[in-house]
Write a protein that binds this DNA or RNA. Structure first.
Lengths: 195, 195
DNA sequence: TAATTGACAAATGTCAAATTCTGTCAATTG
DNA sequence: CAATTGACAGAATTTGACATTTGTCAATTA
């Protein structure tokens, strides 16, 4: 009963999209591979050709999610702005993206939050990518004499840790999230500290 | 069948102590007010004279817990040390206390962690107490010309937020907790930023 | 009459049976 | 013969009957 041939990658994308739709509609706890397959109109066995396990499918969803975070930030990290301005914009954008994702799509955000607790490697890679972007901006600031730090990598790591209350999923989704004013205040304080 | 009279406050303390014992022994999920009362040898109905609800009882446990955090820190905040040294010691102590509580008493830590998510007011008060202590230390540093910040309160809030990865219960109990070296690195970076 | 009890209703938790889901694979389709 | 199905075993989840717990309060005690 095989249907008309479709490109593998199209089908893979369709599975991912449908999974996102169902995650948004019913949340992670109600997601079953059988449902995803039924929604597309195929047997669930076939989904396993593309994703060896449900966990792999969810990881792929999370990976897409994370990409949407670090791609726009990557663009900022290579844009044409003074280092301090750029660093501020970079963090403001990171924070805006996270807040927006949380507010617009709490169900998907919850999936990410849950996965963040289990998928050490994927999260570590994501953090590494982001810290490396910060590192580049600080390095530029050093070149122009705007910043003066001994160890750029350490400074970047410090900035990322110190701003965790502003972008870490646990805080972003918490009622303790600081007011806009406090966010700006903390960012300015930290960026000033690099001079 | 009333037993011999005991001071109200003694009985209240006894309930709290017994609750802690049972929390440590069986964890929060297995704690029942009936068990607490039986362990003491009274009817559970009587516990409700002292704590209007089980939640109130658990909140009182958390309050005791929080006190054990900010009392020793309060002592540091008024001790005889240079402001930068004092600030470093204060944060190191905060971090050490949290880590120790988590490692030595994960059951009680879990109670605190759960409550931290619900009890906005109690947690806010606790944070406020701590930020005020930081504020005092920074103020001293300003007097001696060691620190130079415009708004002491804001600086204290910034420091507290920026160190959240080092002392916030979610992070303290997470596998992502930074290595000792990174902790020191971040503290030095932030304290230097006040100069 | 203040402290305490114990019987009680409503809410919550437990556990085993029933159902659904995951992941595999031999059979089927085009 | 590559893509897909559908039947299947074992794992995980849901259900619902039952047990415990929470919280109240009128009766009891000292």
């Amino acid at each position: 009963m095989a249907k008309k041939r479709e490109s593998s990658s199209d089908l893979k994308d369709q599975i991912l999209e449908t999974t996102e739709v169902l995650l948004r509609r019913y949340g992670a706890s109600k997601l079953s591979v059988v449902d995803v397959a039924r929604e597309i109109g195929m047997s669930h066995g076939n989904v396993y050709r593309f994703f060896p396990s449900k966990t792999d499918l969810l990881n792929a969803i999370a990976a897409k999610w994370l990409e949407k975070v670090h791609v726009p930030l990557g663009e900022i990290s290579i844009c044409d702005l003074a280092a301090d301005q750029k660093l501020k914009l970079w963090f403001e954008t990171l924070i805006k993206i996270k807040r927006k994702k949380f507010l617009e799509d709490p169900q998907l955000f919850a999936v990410y939050l849950e996965l963040a607790g289990h998928q050490l490697e994927q999260v570590n890679n994501h953090v590494d990518t982001l810290v490396t972007q910060i590192e580049k901006i600080i390095e530029e600031g050093k070149q122009t004499g705007m910043f003066s730090v001994l160890d750029t990598r350490k400074a970047a790591t410090n900035l990322f840790h110190a701003t965790a209350t502003l972008h870490h999923p646990v805080f972003v989704s918490s009622p303790y999230y600081p007011a806009e004013e406090e966010v700006i205040e903390l960012l300015n304080f930290l960026i000033r500290a690099l001079s």
